[in-house]
Amino acid sequence: MTQLQNEVLSEYVKMLGNPPLRVISENTGINMSRIFRLYNGSEMSLKEYQVFKNEMMRIKEISSLDDLIERCLYKLSKDKLSKIVVDLERSLVVSSVVGG
């Protein structure tokens, strides 16, 4: 677990550009003192490992979505972009109704 743990922790920090412990704690939901101990060699539980992996997956999805949005803004017409905005707004409405 230790090598995997080190890989995950350093990759996570790299992805977020050296965030403060407070931010890591907020993002992962893991107590700040526990985060401190993990970064200082305390062994990670499987559950904590999964939390970090999921969080990294989420960041990757957001960043690929960011790239896609940027390309759309550059390439697509105003009309097409308005339609995308409407679609996204409607998706948020659906999400607020079903609690997603």
Binding site: V85, V86, E89, R90, V93, V94, V97
Partner: peptide, 10 residues
């Protein structure tokens, strides 16, 4: 309001 109504609102 910019968005159109969803089916459930309609």
């Amino acid at each position: 309001m910019n968005r159109s109504l969803t089916l459930f609102e309609r």
